[in-house]
Design a protein around this nucleic acid. Sequence first.
RNA 1: GGACCUGUGGUGCAGCCUGGAGUGCACGCCGCCCUGUCAAGGCGGAGGUCGCGGGUUCAAAUCCCGUCAGGUCCGCCA
Length: 580
Amino acid sequence: MSTPSESTAMRDRFCGTLRTSDVGTRLAVCGWVAKRREHGEHLAFVDLRDHTGLIQCVIDGAVDVHSEFVLRVTGTVTVRPEGTLNPHLGTGEVELADCVVEVLATAETPPLSIGGRVESDEQVRLKWRFLDLRQDRMQKNLRLRARINSAIRAAFDRQGFCEVETPLLWAPTPEGAREFVIPSRHFPGSFYVLPQSPQLAKQLLMVAGFDRYYQIARCMRDEDLRADRQYEFTQLDVEASFVTQEDVFGFVTEAVLDAAEAATGERPGPIERLTWFECLDRFGTDKPDLRFGMELVDLTEQFAATEARALRAPTVKAMRVPGGADLARARLDAMTERAKQLGAGGLAWFRVTESGLDSPLLKFLSDEEAVAVARVDDAVPGDLVLAVADVHAVACRALGALRVALGSPPVAQGPHRYCWVTEFPLFEGLGADGAPLSAHHPFTMPHPDDLDRLESDPLSVRSQSYDLVLNGWELGSGSVRIHRGDIQRRVFSVLRMTDEEAEQRFGFLLGAFRYGAPPHAGFAFGIDRLAAIFAGEENIREVIAFPKTQSGADLMTGAPTPIAASQLAEVGIEVRPSPT
RNA sequence: GGACCUGUGGUGCAGCCUGGAGUGCACGCCGCCCUGUCAAGGCGGAGGUCGCGGGUUCAAAUCCCGUCAGGUCCGCCA
């Protein structure tokens, strides 16, 4: 059991690793007092904790230690007397006897319960994060994350990738997420920004000849926070030259499967693939959760000539909710509201009962239509069938949102279902000026089969971009980049971006491309999200040591805070009093 | 910018709907007792701006309005 790393000048072993094979050894352990149990002046037990677990120390006499004191205990590993074994502890067959206790540090009573039965409110946990991190859960999560990082690094090193660090102080990029700005002391009134991703830097590295680059990179985006979004987050960032989409899939898959194995002990099978359209059509989202069914069913044909006005539309999509017939009317109303928020005109619901359908719309349905509804996804009595009629994308997305809301199991329940989503559209919709908008970024290579429709029918053009999805969370995305000036000019032209604008926005990248840009492609995925899913956590704050709240506050440090006038003056900034 | 949920001794909850004395439970903390406990046990004790402000009322933790903080979501995140 002993590993070389356990031993230091102060301690010989970790608390949680002592076993019967160590019996007879006199040794020192260090840790925090998890619990003290006193039995008068002649006997006391102290449970000493470190990140590996607990060891019970037997003290012959009274002991003046309290919870969370830091101790060095020297004792002899002894088999516990018969009848006092504790099967709930890894160390439960042994204890430390004849103990000498050194108090290395005293401790005040902690403001939250460490290792207790109940979990404190997150507000309390974040304020006292350094104590919260002592908990078993956080120790496990952060150590799991470290194993993931290390597996990813090993996988890319093995595949011949070179880790390169890129700047945190960077130049503004006019599109994409809002950036955090950093004032320049040397050039008052000028600013750096923190990178929302190393996107441009890694493409420059391709031009520079680092043909397989990766980095575990911190990215910063000043956008509103969510359970799966923090201002700063960590991405595995990859780019490679002289490769196709297939090569990128190979590199990334290897790293993800290695990370999964390092985190869970099991290596997942091959990652399946779905096209973007198939995802939308079957699951109503571009990040499908494949852990459960409830796939969307197309009823457009069956309702082509319907009398029910609510179901007259270019597309009719339906979904079976197993056992959903007993959902309360209030719940159904809330779901209808949700569908409307997502742009649908409404939501039709049908309870499937032994005696047929139950629905306010039933009287408008023909017999054939009612049969079609009752047969959706092999529905049985007790199920609920939901339907949305609208244009294809709206109908699918509305049902897709309800599918997740109604069917998504807890993360911790597993399993882990990965998929590559391919063939995203190159553009998504039209901007206010009527020009198409880039779906990914303007350097994304169009699908070769669609290149001839770039000008004539841009919205139908697929791109060579792809996402990696795990359990309904978008882990990351990537694309084959445009390295040819002629294609880039055509895309800019479709985006109605003039040469001057392009030069102004992306000048240094386009300039670099004139000096010999290799064909290249890349990918980036969020390590916070990957770690959270492997840890069975519903939000990424549980795998981040010092996260911020949804409003961007750090409850421990108090950041963000005003800074001294002198500090402001130094960088040439004057703060306008708040308008209130 | 918007919707919803939450805020009660150090911690986790109940009380709120249906107004009537800061009432209750569990953990923790302090003191005393206890020689094999491990969710130790027994006895005793301390600890409160019911997030904050205003309103209604004879009376507000409870009802109403506002506000702050935390969470989930929409917008946003090329």
